[in-house]
Design a protein around this nucleic acid. Structure first.
Lengths: 218, 218
DNA sequence: TTGCATACGTACTGGTTGGTATGCTGTTGA
DNA sequence: TCAACAGCATACCAACCAGTACGTATGCAA
């Protein structure tokens, strides 16, 4: 008896879409890593969250480590750019203090964001000491972030909206430390209230950076 | 003539010393958890760092989780008390701003501390979202810490050395967020320089909390 | 139509993990 | 003197985990 011809059509006629597969993997892997940490995020769990199989994963990424690197460069870095750098760029004619206040207040305070904390901090805490490759990639993000803020502050100093006695880089770091610090506190509390109080205090501190005689909307 | 009443200690023979065994385990486990995180710290690695065997471990602790709880309650909590609460207690007649400045400046900046980050933050980042038992224990430490600072600030407000417009609890949280935030930045940089700049900025901010007309050593 | 590279799917493996079952030894109270 | 028990030591296990081997389906070029 002749073999039956192969199943002509699979129900969900899967189109080949390597870029789509790659993105699915990155997104799912990010979610798992965000939740459980890189080391504890299991490959099988990541695959279970997608319709992708192990063969496909290891076709697109050399190793779990390489997947981790891609997450940092393509997802985590983008989050920082979306939340901080692009808004700063777009409001570069405005008073940078007002811009920063707007940005800080716009950081999502949805339960899942507060409870999960900042992906950048999560990965830094877990990996910076253990793996230099991870550390370098994370450091680049921090530097980009700091420079973005420092540049805006420097401009504000030129146009007279920001106090001249500040060192822009140090002030930028300080702001980042405050934001990250409150993310940690909020994550521990698993509660947006802590975060909202934090925002309030950061905004109040940001206001103290205005050049004397420069009220709101300077 | 009577000889020594108690047995002379034998050098090589292993004396049974359950409390010592327990402490060895706690210390070694803390070091491993501090370095690799709780989930990634292996039981075998912990045991390898001691002269203790698995049987002894599971005699003293019900599970890895229970060991983790003990680490938080007996080691991490003690670090916070040693660095913050006891110094605050001991200098309760002093200006609290000066006391806090002293404490912040006294936080160890040795490479291994900077590179490892703050144990409290490490554990919070990793576990708060995943395990409520861990979270609760960590939250207690944060609360103790915050209350210690807030109490000191409140006293300062009464004695006129601290600005009266501050909300002590919020200011305490803010300080904690700053410290933790800079620990994250320093850990990412794997470099004490970032930390030292952080200290400088925090100290400068702390000085701004003094009541008007109240210089140093108020 | 063939030929071949891309893009997967599946079954498996060697090593590791937290945890346990069981047995031994030193100490202590009767 | 001896039983009972605290305090371990050792061997072992099932589950899991990253990674691989290898087969197969698809698209495209010649």
């Amino acid at each position: 008896m002749l073999l039956t011809p192969k199943k002509v059509q699979r129900r969900t006629a899967k189109l080949r879409d390597p870029e789509g597969t790659r993105q699915s993997l990155l997104q799912a892997a990010f979610r798992e890593v965000y939740r459980y940490g890189f080391q504890s995020a299991g490959i099988d769990a990541i695959l279970g969250a997608t319709h992708v199989t192990k063969g496909a994963l290891y076709y697109h990424f050399e190793s779990k480590e390489a997947l981790g690197h891609a997450i940092i460069e393509e997802i985590v870095a983008e989050i920082t750019r979306d939340r901080w750098l692009r808004p700063l760029e777009q409001s570069k004619d405005k008073n940078p203090i007002d811009a920063l206040i707007g940005i800080v207040q716009a950081i999502p305070a949805r339960p899942r964001d507060v409870k999960g904390g900042c992906p950048l901090v999560n990965l830094t805490q877990e990996m910076s000491q253990l793996d230099e490759q991870f550390r370098k990639r994370l450091e680049r993000i921090f530097q980009e972030w700091q420079e973005g803020i420092a540049t805006a502050l420097r401009k504000g100093q030129c146009t007279g909206t920001v106090r001249r006695d500040l060192v822009p880089e140090e002030t930028a770091s300080f702001l980042i430390a405050m934001v990250e610090g409150y993310e940690v506190l909020a994550k521990n509390a698993q509660n947006a209230k802590v975060w909202n109080i934090g925002i309030k205090n950061i905004v109040s501190w940001l206001s103290s950076l205005r050049a004397p005689g420069n009220g709101k909307r300077g």
